[in-house]
């Protein structure tokens, strides 16, 4: 799956996107666990309100623990500020 990072999250990951191929990632929860191990600095933001770091799967926001598959495009967002 492809994971994309936006705005100041890129300061933590140091990349805009990456391809992740890990059999242990089966849903949003296991993806977050994987990312927290890889980027420990995300922890303080993931711990904030539930939706502080938002997740989108294939261009749709998700707020529950949805299943993931290898072709999904995942995006991690900080709070938005358009308009």
């Amino acid at each position: 799956m492809i994971i994309k990072y936006f705005a100041w999250l890129k300061n933590i990951t140091n990349i805009e996107e990456e391809k992740v191929d890990d059999k242990n990632i089966t849903d949003v929860k296991t993806l977050k666990e994987f990312l927290l191990k890889k980027y420990p600095q995300l922890d303080q933001y993931m711990k904030k309100e539930d939706d502080f770091i938002r997740v989108a799967i294939n261009l749709e926001y998700v707020t529950t623990n949805e299943p993931l598959n290898s072709k999904d495009e995942i995006a991690l967002f900080p709070p938005v500020s358009g308009g």
Binding site: A56, Y61, P78, V80, S81, G82, G83
Partner: peptide, 13 residues
């Protein structure tokens, strides 16, 4: 506009 401010994926630096 309310929706755009709340949800549209844009970020201002």
């Amino acid at each position: 506009m309310d929706y755009l401010k709340k949800d549209a994926p844009f970020w201002k630096k």
